[in-house]
Amino acid sequence: MSELTLTLIRLGFLAVLWLFVLSAVSVIRSDMFGARVENRKASKPARAAQPPKPPKPPKPARTLRRGSRHAPRSLVVVDGPDKGQSAPLSEQPILIGRGADAAIRLDDDYVSTRHARVASNGEQWFVEDLGSTNGTYLGHQRVTTPTPLTMGTPIRVGKTVLELRR
């Protein structure tokens, strides 16, 4: 066997070895980034809100619903174990709870799996208790029926406080 063949085999084997490693890496890469993008988009506002930047003074604007400038855009956790989490408001109702299917998933022992829901009728936002154990409060008032929300009103569930924000 000539020297040249042996060298070719030697280099060829190393090439195959690295080819294997790189294919494995590319499979891992597609495994990580192959998932749909909603995931990343959704996690962005949460991460942006993570540093405890002083919350903008929640103006208790009452019924300022002139145009979209004053419409609330997100539901933010302002206090409690999951402070900083948020969910954008859309047509879909937002489920608050400890369950895996909740849009705002709280790690709070005093919150039920499906605790409350924030939904809109197109003009106004409502909060509705879903038969939770410890109740949902607006101020000191326990929510029993769907109650209209204004921006900055603290919604209390368990040890967590949420607010509508622009």
Binding site: N39, S43, P45, A46, A87
Partner: peptide, 14 residues
């Protein structure tokens, strides 16, 4: 921590 507004079906694509 879990981020908000992620429906379980879009979280991980099986």
């Amino acid at each position: 921590m879990t981020a908000g507004a992620v429906e379980p079906s879009t979280d991980v694509v099986p």
